[in-house]
Design a binder for these strands. Structure first.
Lengths: 183, 183
DNA sequence: TAGCTTTGTGCGTTATAACGCACAAGGGGC
DNA sequence: GCCCCTTGTGCGTTATAACGCACAAAGCTA
């Protein structure tokens, strides 16, 4: 399962530059906000230095955000909480995307025989299904399994997968974990 | 909500020492496994040095675990996934505790009028409720709210809270997030 | 265009991370 | 008790993190 987003060498550099750009501030303004020198911030962004954890903490505090936002490889930026359900599938939002938890939950309704194909979501996304009523099929990993009321399954959703409502249709909870877990 | 577990100055030291003790290895063995010198590991454990992120990464890789296990303040060690439901309350495990996600899910059944008091769970624990059938009351934050089928609520569960089944009883999903989100 | 301000980079200096090694203390075996 | 090994700490050395400052280039305004 692809949840463990390994930190690659440029993760911190990319994150810092992206966050600074999102804030629309220069290195100087960032230095003012964080108490870390402009020269050091530039070094970090250019990967010319391996900062201490204390320096990274200063940056995250100065920007008013969690430290993990600097450290964790971001597999979704605008696409966090952006799973869409194209077509006529019926979707109710149970819990909207929560940036701190990195989780969102929907209630989905499939009519009898209705088939819904989902393309691979962003890397690392894990998905839970809990069947509220009726029955359905889940197609993933080249396997096909049937789920009835009360049954639950968790799978890696950064691969294509599909649902099909059985004869009585199905209503299920669909939770997405966006890789905000351990890394 | 208490999910943001701020990193305190001794978090890394405590985590490193705890993990090493859990493995039952000396500083020398740890140095062999991680490629970080014995002297440096000792300095980190005694908080005499602020390690670079590269060094911490080496340690986490050497121990074969996520970097976040070193950085994140652990609000539960043996108590992760350890929420218990004392009394006659009926509980089914839907998803057991997952250390990478830091999440577990139960299906709980309350008979009509049944009252269940829960003491504060570990610091930072967040809880979701989704009512599958029937109706219930939730008592938390000195407020009391009624939830009927299909309704959901999220709240900080590191404080005392209580459930009561209404006249038709209640069945609900109960998800615990153990603070493995952003930090 | 000229002048001023902003921006990011490079450089030299200082403080400290990270290391290898030595050693005192503790533990285990004979 | 003696000897050997293990363990954690301290120390001196080297490499590098982090800084302040200077400066070239870019951007903006009159």
């Amino acid at each position: 399962m692809g949840l463990l987003s390994a930190m690659r060498e440029d993760t911190i550099a990319q994150n810092l530059r992206r966050i600074r750009n999102e804030k629309g501030i220069s290195l100087s303004r960032a230095a003012d906000q964080t108490g870390v020198s402009k020269a050091m911030l530039g070094q970090i962004e250019r990967q010319e230095s391996s900062p201490t954890i204390a320096t990274l903490w200063k940056i995250s505090q100065g920007f008013g955000m969690p430290l993990s936002f600097l450290l964790q490889e971001v597999t979704c930026t605008e696409s966090c909480g952006a799973v869409r359900f194209p077509g006529s599938i019926s979707v109710r939002i149970v819990f909207p995307y929560d940036a701190m938890l990195g989780v969102e939950t929907f209630e989905i309704t499939l009519s009898p025989g209705q088939f819904h194909q989902s393309e691979a979501h962003v890397a690392g996304l894990v998905e839970d299904i809990f069947v509220l009523s009726g029955g359905m099929e889940l197609h993933v990993d080249e396997t096909e399994r049937q789920l009835s009321q009360g049954q639950a399954v968790r799978f890696a959703a950064d691969q294509p997968h599909a649902y099909r409502g059985l004869d009585e249709g199905a209503v299920f909870l669909n939770t997405h974990y966006y890789g905000r877990g351990a890394f």
